[in-house]
Design a protein around this nucleic acid. Structure first.
Lengths: 277, 277
DNA sequence: TTGCTCCTCACGTCACGTGAGGTGGC
DNA sequence: TTGCTCCTCACGTCACGTGAGGTGGC
């Protein structure tokens, strides 16, 4: 019942007013996200103020946009208008990125169902050792994109400052743990003729020689697992696999063009080179 | 390691080939979604066939599209091509509906943050009893839209068959339980001058008289909670609330126009009419 | 032989939903 | 007084992730 004197609502009426279920309201109370203005000492009955309807509506909107409750708490706690707007804008930007990925996934699914788009060429070769400027960290798959461009820019700035020119496209060395656990060490490197000096996260590193089976993936990284699959199948059937981390090399990437369809990524899987190959 | 004789991969290599984590692959095995072709009797080591890479990729794509694992299982188990395509198309249609709702939520959030769009007019009045054709069921909030149009079409078809004309716009009577639990009894009714005969789910029903505070909500139902909030606040401050279910009446709805901005929904909250009102 | 890879429990996470069993308010 | 509304646990759901503690394979 609505109490006409205090202007407060029972949890049931507040549920009607906000379209949040009673269970959900109790949950938000437990978390301290939306605390009723009044709680009866003996009966523990909750009473919500009319002025709390607005907060409840903001929570509902943000939940409709899949914002986590912790983030919503931050939005509500933010004193100033600017901080609030920034938090919400950041979330909307994230939603837009997810939308692009969803659209890519739909396209890629369509491709998968319509059958293979011709087996891409796989070659075997020996990679020589090379000096490089590198950044190496443990990275989770979810943060891979942000990490990659951050690290790449840092390496490029370091080379610039030391007046060193890259001697080839950037690449990464991806630990097995990254694939096994969706989180593991990744080394980003940019080949250089000479040995660079350390600066920030950037260190000089000799990328060791290795024998590999290589394939080139065309387009956005959303569909790159298909190319990995083709390479793995080839190695299982036509080569002697050996232990060692996968390498990628970014022949054409976001540094070169915003048109993802033009991207070219080389994937190298360690093998034991034989005469047959 | 990849076994060149049998063409099978260890779980670690299969993870590399498919970009699914080892934990995820074990989870899919537990559920029977993706069972390794071979399991060592003593060591329990899993071995995946090269031909399983494709299935894994389909699973990954569908998970990227947030399809539940049970639904993915149904897609994989479907023998014929047509059934598969239908299941996937149905999921894509659901994604599109969610996208529309997300866009609506963004717009509605923007409105909330920019402040109230003027308090809509709230009036008090007495509703007379009326004969109606009705459908009444327990409905969950998630299936409300589908249920509403299904029930409305059934009532309209019944009136058509009995040569009865509606005497006013359709409405619903929404139990308190629906708001409290996001699931409860809802009665859809179309007022008729005369008493109709029963047919299918449709039954005749006398909608009782009631005294209410009413407000009209303009636009899509995504933002209707804001209008509910305004009405609840008004009742708390300016009226004597009484127990009884909320009613909605669809003055302009999806039956009239596809342009959601033109929709008009009347919401009636039970009160005790006084001289002051 | 060493160090990695693999194994199986058991429990945690997130945002609630689902009862069970009991009490308060009109 | 009756029947609804409200209360608090405790556990379930979904799709995994996170250790712990132990074994197998090159």
């Amino acid at each position: 019942m609505i109490d006409d004197v205090t202007g407060t609502l029972t949890i049931g009426d507040f549920a009607k007013a906000t379209h949040l279920s009673v269970k959900t309201l109790r949950h938000y109370h437990d978390l301290g996200l939306l605390v009723p203005t009044q709680i009866d000492a003996s009966s523990k009955y909750r009473r919500y103020g009319v002025d709390q309807i607005q907060s409840a509506q903001v929570i509902r909107r943000l939940r409709d946009l899949d914002m986590p409750l912790a983030a919503i708490g931050a939005v509500l706690d933010a004193r100033d208008y600017t901080t609030r707007s920034e938090l919400i804008a950041a979330h909307l930007a994230r939603l837009e990125r997810e939308l692009v990925e969803t659209q890519n996934a739909v396209g890629s699914l369509r491709g998968l169902l319509q059958g293979a788009s011709g087996t891409p060429t796989i070659t075997h070769r020996s990679e020589p050792a090379v000096q490089a400027a590198s950044v190496s960290t443990r990275v989770a798959r979810a943060e891979l994109g942000a990490w990659f461009y951050g690290a790449l820019r840092e390496v490029e700035a370091t080379l610039d400052a030391q007046h060193v020119l890259p001697s080839g496209p950037a690449g990464t060395i991806v630990s097995d743990a990254f694939f096994a656990d969706d989180s593991g060490e990744i080394t980003l490197f940019v080949p250089t003729g000479t040995r660079v000096a350390m600066a920030g996260r950037v260190e000089p590193r000799l990328i060791p020689s290795i024998e590999v089976a290589v394939i080139v993936h065309a387009g956005s990284h959303t569909g790159i697992d298909r190319t990995y699959g083709a390479l793995a199948a080839h190695v299982a059937n036509h080569a002697v696999a050996v232990d060692g981390p996968i390498r990628e090399r970014y022949l054409v990437s976001g540094s070169d063009t915003d048109d993802e369809r033009r991207w070219r990524t080389e994937i190298a899987w360690p093998i034991f080179l034989t005469a047959a190959s």
